[in-house]
Lab assay of single mutants.
Amino acid sequence: MIINNLKLIREKKKISQSELAALLEVSRQTINGIEKNKYNPSLQLALKIAYYLNTPLEDIFQWQ
């Protein structure tokens, strides 16, 4: 199972779901689904999230 800290990191950086979704060219619902662990992002999307949040990938997504 993958645990993610996306919501915590996104809120710490004061970025809304809508703003992050626009940067990543995905829907706000996609961001919401990832934050709620409804599904895991593709590797490409995970890397883009880490890039736009300027945060190491392993700080956002962790195996458990």
Rank of each mutant, 00 (worst) to 15 (best):
I15K: 06
L45G: 02
K38E: 15
Q64V: 11
I34F: 04
G33N: 15
Y52L: 11
A22M: 12
T55R: 05
Q62D: 06
E19A: 13
V26K: 03
L53T: 04
N37K: 09
Q29T: 14
Y52S: 07
Q29V: 12
S42N: 10
P56G: 05
E35Q: 02
K12M: 14
A46L: 05
W63T: 04
S27E: 09
S18D: 14
N5E: 04
S16R: 08
R10P: 01
K14E: 10
S42V: 04
W63F: 08
I49V: 06
L8N: 12
F61L: 03
E25K: 14
T30L: 15
N54T: 09
L24S: 07
E19M: 12
G33Q: 14
S42I: 04
G33F: 13
N54F: 06
L43Y: 15
Q29F: 11
N32W: 10
L23W: 15
L53M: 07
E11R: 11
K13S: 10
D59S: 10
L53R: 00
Y39C: 09
N4R: 02
V26D: 02
F61G: 01
P56I: 04
E58W: 10
L23T: 07
N32K: 15
L20M: 07
I2Y: 12
K14S: 12
K36T: 15
L20E: 00
D59I: 08
P56F: 04
N5C: 06
E35M: 02
E58N: 14
T55W: 05
N32M: 15
N32T: 12
S16V: 04
S42A: 06
L6R: 00
E35T: 01
K36M: 15
R28C: 09
R10W: 02
I3N: 07
V26M: 05
I3S: 09
F61A: 01
L20W: 01
E11I: 14
L20D: 00
R10C: 03
I15D: 00
K13D: 04
L24R: 01
A50P: 00
I15C: 05
R28K: 12
I34E: 00
I60Y: 01
I34Q: 00
L20T: 01
K12C: 09
A50Q: 04
P41H: 02
N40Q: 10
S16D: 06
I15V: 11
N40I: 14
A22F: 11
E11K: 10
Q29E: 15
L23S: 11
I9K: 04
E35A: 01
E25G: 13
K48S: 08
N54A: 14
D59R: 09
K7R: 15
I49A: 05
N37C: 08
G33E: 15
T30Q: 09
I2K: 09
I9V: 13
E35C: 02
I9P: 00
Q17I: 13
M1N: 05
L8M: 14
S16E: 06
T55K: 05
Q64E: 15
L6M: 11
L53I: 04
K14A: 11
A50V: 05
T55N: 04
P41N: 01
E25W: 08
N32G: 09
A46E: 02
L8S: 13
I15R: 04
Q17L: 12
N54S: 14
I9Y: 12
N32I: 15
A21S: 08
L47T: 11
Q17V: 14
F61Y: 03
A22V: 10
L45P: 00
K12F: 11
L43D: 05
W63D: 03
K36H: 15
E11A: 09
I3H: 07
Q64N: 12
L45T: 05
L53C: 03
Q64T: 13
K12E: 13
W63Y: 06
L20C: 02
T30F: 13
I49W: 01
Q17H: 04
G33H: 15
K48W: 06
S16C: 05
L24Y: 00
V26E: 05
E58R: 10
L53Y: 01
Y39R: 10
N54Q: 13
Q64Y: 09
L24Q: 00
K48E: 07
Q62S: 10
I2M: 10
W63A: 04
Y52I: 14
N32F: 07
L6G: 01
F61R: 01
T55P: 01
I3L: 15
P41F: 04
M1T: 07
A22Y: 10
S16Y: 04
K36E: 15
A50R: 03
L45S: 03
Q17S: 06
D59E: 14
Y39K: 11
T55M: 08
T30R: 08
I49E: 00
A22P: 02
F61V: 02
